[in-house]
Design a protein around this nucleic acid. Structure first.
Lengths: 205, 205
DNA sequence: ACACAAATCGACATTTGTGTCGTTTTTAAT
DNA sequence: ATTAAAAACGACACAAATGTCGATTTGTGT
């Protein structure tokens, strides 16, 4: 007559399920993935899964949260660097790596945003919008700080440069996927992005 | 005892159905759209619809073909212009208009490509890939011709500049949709694209 | 006006996935 | 060992959409 399992049991189980779910999303994408798939992949019963998550959307959002935490971690590391330009280039190369390696989950995210946005009938600031805004703010702040420290001399507004970067990355992600671009093409396009950023930010060398 | 309707009857009817289908895709997106939706929107019966199209995918592909014909129009206009730079800028501004206007249909295309690509298990040159290649070729050829006529002095390969442009547009399309960007933001980002292209192509003035 | 094939209709059987819920198993405290 | 709640199980009823097919309507040549 007492709680049955120890405290972390459910937490661990949840992580296991999420791990399996991620595999499913990578394999089938967000739209095609079903609860049944997750049940099979995780090797649990229908009832068990539903006691942790209400539906596919719920599962996916939990995975999103995990990834968001990683992003926040990156931003914290940011303060350590001395050269802003070098740091920016490093970050871009990191994105390149994400795009050209395990990018199939990124695609699921795009699917998810597409669907969710249409559902939330043009309504105001949704979860998705908030996520975007956070990223925009992070990049904008970074550029502003670099400018303040006289390391950048931008000829365009920092916010628009941030938006421009994000657009480019989103597009590159989709096109890389659709075209099955070899790594070299991604590399070259990233080089072009860096070239254009150098023209806009005019960093000290 | 002879064919019942005149020759254009079926052609017209097909157009009507496609018109209704387009509305459905704009409203619900490719993934959420069903044959039932098209039946309702077109005000016809299940049997009638199926006598023209086998499934949603089929309907969508027919719509794509219509749009492709419009794209070809752009390429033909090309020869008339004298200033290559001006022509390029004009074309870009046209894309801006497409992105920021009520063209939710573009989003359906992105959904469609996402799904289709995953289905065609990394297989070789699909219809989608062909479409992309055509666009890349068109832009690349244009830049090369401009370079040949000494109107451009590019510092990056024309092919990569083309890929870069396409990535940017695809990303801007998605982000504009997801963020409900006001027109001004799109304008500013397009300006940045033009700025960066000027740096890369170095056109005569 | 008749005949007949083409065009349209819509009921139906199927498929696929959902979320629920009564049953069974597991676990830890007594 | 016993017990009782927590956790896992999986059968089931339901929903939504699909593609088919026999029945019905429509329109044109004779």
């Amino acid at each position: 007559m007492s709680p049955k399992v120890n405290d972390n049991y459910k937490i661990n189980k949840k992580q296991e399920i999420l791990k399996a779910a991620r595999k499913v999303f990578i394999k089938k994408g967000y739209i095609q993935a079903t609860m049944q798939d997750i049940i099979n992949e995780a090797g649990i019963s229908r009832g068990a899964l539903y006691s942790y998550f209400n539906n596919v959307e719920h599962v996916f959002e939990e995975l999103l949260k995990l990834d968001d935490e990683k992003d926040i971690t990156f931003i914290k590391i940011a303060d350590d660097y001395t050269s802003f330009w070098k740091q920016l280039v490093d970050w871009i190369r990191l994105q390149k790596h994400i795009i050209s390696s395990n990018n199939e989950f990124l695609l699921s995210k795009i699917e998810f945003f597409l669907i969710k946005h249409r559902e939330s009938n043009k309504s105001s600031s949704s979860y998705i919008t908030e996520r975007y805004k956070n990223l925009i703010t992070a990049i904008t702040d970074f550029i502003d700080k670099g400018t303040e420290k006289k390391q950048f001399h931008p000829c365009k507004s920092s916010e628009f440069i941030a938006l421009y970067m994000i657009s480019f990355f989103d597009g590159l992600t989709i096109d890389t996927f659709n075209l099955n671009l070899e790594l070299t093409r991604v590399n070259e396009q990233i080089d072009i992005l860096i070239f254009t950023l150098e023209n806009m930010l005019r960093p000290i060398k």
